[in-house]
């Protein structure tokens, strides 16, 4: 029973990742793309945790924690880059 639910939930996360990716490609402004990346890494992290439950392995925790750390830092750094106004126009 549980594995069916895990597959359903992975399917839903896959759709969310596709929607976020679409926003990443399309997003009219740079800020939209950063926001899409932000959501993308959060959903990817959750997908990884679900995958860990499916494979019955606790090794995926470290990967998820690192994704959370680096995702946050990259979001902040990209925003800082925009705020400093180094982008032409």
């Amino acid at each position: 029973m549980l594995s069916v639910v895990i597959y359903i939930s992975m399917f839903m996360f896959g759709i969310s990742l596709l929607l976020n990716f679409y926003r990443l490609l399309r997003g009219p402004d740079a800020v939209d793309r950063i926001l899409a990346l932000d959501t993308l890494y959060i959903n990817g992290l959750a997908l990884l945790v679900v995958f860990g439950v499916l494979l019955n392995s606790r090794l995926f925790f470290e990967a998820a924690l690192l994704i959370a750390l680096f995702g946050f830092f990259s979001t902040v750094v990209l925003c800082k880059y925009l705020l400093r106004g180094d982008i032409i126009e």
């Binding site: 029973m1 549980l2 639910v5 895990i6 359903i8 939930s9 992975m10 839903m12 996360f13 759709i15 969310s16 990742l17 929607l19 976020n20 679409y22 926003r23 402004d29 800020v31 939209d32 926001l35 899409a36 959501t39 959060i42 959903n43 959750a46 679900v50 439950v53």
Partner: peptide, 26 residues
């Protein structure tokens, strides 16, 4: 319980992404 939390979590993530896709302004 595990199945319930997984479904709720993925449903909310999906709704959030639909919001990100649908809403018209940043």
């Amino acid at each position: 319980g595990v199945a319930f939390f997984l479904l709720i979590g993925s449903a909310f993530a999906l709704v959030g992404s639909i919001g990100l896709h649908r809403f018209p302004d940043f």
